[in-house]
């Protein structure tokens, strides 16, 4: 059933389950377990938030490290699912952790609005169980993709810091699209030296072409300006 295997190097996927009904939590955990998925249940939005706050690893852009997905009941005692979703959004924690809403009768419009705000999907109760699990797996896959992209970028940024001054100059001119000969003339070095620097820059930043390099630099500058 698991069509696209999750990349093992990211760690074990985790499904967070927030529902105020113990029996529903228990049943869904049981179901996930039958599909060999780990899950962790919380009885309320507040409990889940407290758990996040207690974990020092939880930082925007850096968390979660393993593929994760949040199954959130829309209507709960205390803080509602929607309110929790908005708070997580505000903290930038939903990028790597897609949210699937569980809705009861009559909450569909609210759930649709939530999807427009960036929720992954919603599932109406009573749900068709294996469909729900399929959606969860898709969400985990999306989470895994986001996490690896995040890791790539971190790696490249670290590479950018490791460049020597000369390599930096060469990189800038390559990103502008200048041919090697012109770069050599500009920097008053030999074309051969330029080629060596260029190969080293490509290696450190794990890019394959000048275009890819330019894109990465643009994104990085954009991030810095932000």
């Amino acid at each position: 059933m698991n069509l696209t295997p999750l990349p093992a190097e990211l760690g074990l996927p985790m499904v967070y389950l927030v529902d105020d009904e113990d029996i529903v939590r228990d049943a869904v955990a049981w179901l996930l377990r039958s599909r060999r998925l780990l899950s962790q249940g919380y009885g309320s939005a507040e409990a889940f938030e407290a758990a996040l706050d207690g974990d020092p690893a939880v930082q925007p852009g850096r968390w979660p490290t393993a593929p994760s997905c949040l199954l959130l009941d829309l209507r709960m005692n205390g803080m509602s699912g929607l309110a929790l979703f908005e708070r997580l959004n505000g903290r930038g924690l939903t990028q790597g952790m897609p949210v699937i809403f569980l809705t009861g009768h009559g909450d569909v419009p609210t759930a649709v609005a939530a999807v427009k705000q960036g929720a992954f999907d919603f599932v109406e109760k009573p749900f068709s169980n294996n469909t729900l699990v399929d959606r969860i797996e898709q969400a985990l896959l999306a989470s895994a993709r986001t996490i690896s992209a995040l890791r790539d970028r971190i790696r490249r940024l670290r590479g950018l810091d490791e460049l020597s001054e000369r390599e930096h100059d060469v990189m800038r001119l390559v990103a502008q699209g200048l041919p090697n000969k012109l770069i050599a003339n500009t920097l008053h070095i030999s074309t051969r030296t330029v080629e060596v620097h260029r190969a080293r820059v490509f290696g450190k930043l794990s890019v394959a072409s000048a275009v890819e390099l330019a894109n990465f630099l643009n994104a990085a500058r954009f991030e810095q300006e932000e």
Binding site: V24, L31, G104
Partner: peptide
């Protein structure tokens, strides 16, 4: 009714 029915369905599907 949704709560017990959802639970029943989940247990049954898991089983």
């Amino acid at each position: 009714l949704n709560q017990p029915l959802s639970a029943i369905a989940a247990y049954a599907t898991g089983s």
